[in-house]
């Protein structure tokens, strides 16, 4: 690899790795899995650097989302355990609500979680979310709808705090 390419790759990763590891953590819910996911996505990006150097971050993010969904599909074959226990909301405050919601987010399948991460953490418009996930805008809307519905099921006390689902799209 040429020295200039190596230097620009290093500069890009050093500048963006903090933001990217946050996204990876939100997708996986685990530090080691997040590092593994990010490294895998960065490796793919480096291998295609000549084609993606104009906007490498978009490629990394797309690689992360696709990889996470693929891994989950593969893992699903061998993992049939019960979902993690969700903390029941204590009426005393929002801290419990937030903790319950965080646990519930980790119970969502990666594609649904990815839609929420892209829309609410990354604050991307539906069109961009659809482009990254390789699906239609309608699918993004329906996945968001289903994800929120699932969150309501997992955190029953949350219903009162949530706006009607229709408001989301």
């Amino acid at each position: 690899m040429r020295r200039e390419a190596r230097e620009s790759i290093t500069a890009f990763i050093e500048a963006r790795s903090t933001s990217l590891i946050r996204t990876a953590y939100a997708l996986t819910g685990d530090q080691h899995a997040a590092e593994d996911l990010l490294q895998s996505a960065l490796t793919k990006t480096i291998l295609r650097w000549r084609h993606v150097r104009d906007n490498p971050e978009a490629y990394v993010r797309r690689a992360m989302y696709n990889e996470q969904v693929s891994r989950w599909r593969r893992a699903r074959e061998q993992t049939t355990g019960d979902p993690p226990e969700i903390a029941v909301r204590d009426e005393s405050g929002d801290v419990d609500l937030r903790l319950s919601l965080e646990s519930a987010l980790l119970c969502l399948p990666p594609r649904k979680r990815a839609v929420l991460v892209l829309r609410y953490l990354e604050d991307l418009p539906e069109v961009e979310v659809a482009e990254i996930l390789g699906c239609s805008v309608g699918t993004v809307r329906s996945q968001t709808h289903k994800a929120i519905a699932r969150l309501r099921e997992l955190v029953p006390g949350l219903t009162a705090d949530l706006a009607p689902i229709e408001e989301l799209s």
């Binding site: 790795s17 590891i21 530090q31 937030r98 987010l105 953490l121 949350l158």
Partner: peptide
């Protein structure tokens, strides 16, 4: 609510 929960989750990530 969702944004806050996702941010809290992401904040647990340690720099690599």
């Amino acid at each position: 609510l969702v944004e806050d929960a996702l941010s809290q989750l992401a904040n647990r990530a340690r720099p690599v």
